[in-house]
Design a protein around this nucleic acid. Structure first.
Lengths: 190, 190
DNA sequence: ACCTGAACACCGTTCAAGT
DNA sequence: ACCTGAACACCGTTCAAGT
């Protein structure tokens, strides 16, 4: 696996903005704070991203691209059942990481206040997740083929909700209990 | 049923703030816009609510109180199975109402930026929902008694997630499909 | 190519002062 | 009791100027 570490200011801005957005949302993103963390001035951020909408869209795009790569890695690491079993861990890791929320969930809440370019990038995020889940559900054969996309959406929504509820209590054990309950009920493959 | 219409400025502020918070979150609450809608000046709002934290906490408290009343009404209207069947409609109605999100979901996303007083009120909201669901699940006998609270939490989290995903697409049919999928999978009583 | 100081318009919030 | 003008701090953005 080729891990690329990029030290350019643009990449540092992107990484910082992503962290901020997962904790405070698009509305909580502000160029002055990001600039301070990166070690440049707010006005300099505009050299790399001409507007807040551009920064937000770039962050959201990178977010789904990274997730897509991670999901592809999951697929390669084992069979479909194993991949599905490990899927919730992606959401768990956000919580482990300073009680962070999925960027897509936060921005879904902020839907009314999002520029169109940001909206469409976060929709790609859920599309990527649903497509991956549908494919793995098909491969695992746990659900009739014609139901796999519908079930994929349900799993994505339910796990997003579990992460949101766990965040509101800063309680990772609650997240685990919710996933376990989804499995017991038969929504999520065990 | 005694419907009380209250015309005091305080009540009008509360109702306006609730609507704004369900669309734009706690961060999106702003005294100038609320004041304009109410017909007073921004500074006057501070007479009724000494700080934004106080307004937020009052809105969140009223929100769970109203929901509690609505749930009690649901319990009285039929047996436990019927009540459980109609539970998702509460979340559906928010979407029908200008694609609004549950206040608790929005504020769970904003957790890091919430005053403690607001945090604790929105936690009461989920407590109220989980307690009601647990009670009805027990009465309906759809799940072993010792699992009813765990299942109640799972249902609440999953339905919250469905509402969030549907909002991000402005698509009520998606909400319906998700709930239907939860029922097919056996998570939510059909 | 990349960065900055300084400024602009705007907004959330505060508070002393009004009636 | 209820409201307001005026001020403050902050934020997104611009731009001429620096290296």
């Amino acid at each position: 696996m080729n891990v690329k570490v990029n030290h350019s200011a643009r990449e540092t801005i992107l990484a910082t903005a992503r962290r901020v957005a997962q904790a405070h949302g698009y509305g909580g993103l502000n160029f002055r704070d990001i600039a301070e963390e990166v070690g440049i001035k707010a006005a300099s951020v505009y050299y790399h991203f001409p507007s807040k909408a551009d920064l937000g869209a770039a962050v959201a795009q990178r977010y789904w691209q990274d997730t897509k790569e991670e999901l592809e890695g999951l697929s390669l690491a084992g069979d479909a059942s194993a991949a599905l079993r490990r899927y919730p861990d992606i959401f768990r890791r956000s919580l482990e990481n300073s009680n962070s929320l999925c960027l897509c969930s936060f921005m879904s809440a902020e839907y009314d206040d999002l520029p169109d370019s940001v909206k469409s990038e976060i929709q790609v995020f859920s599309d990527v997740n649903v497509a991956w889940l549908g494919k793995e559900l098909d491969a695992a054969g746990v659900v009739p083929r014609e139901k796999s996309v519908k079930r994929a959406r349900a799993i994505f929504a339910a796990i997003s909700g579990a992460q949101l509820m766990a965040r509101s209590r800063s309680d990772i054990a609650l997240f685990d209990a919710l996933i376990s309950s989804y499995r017991e009920a038969g929504l999520v493959p065990a």
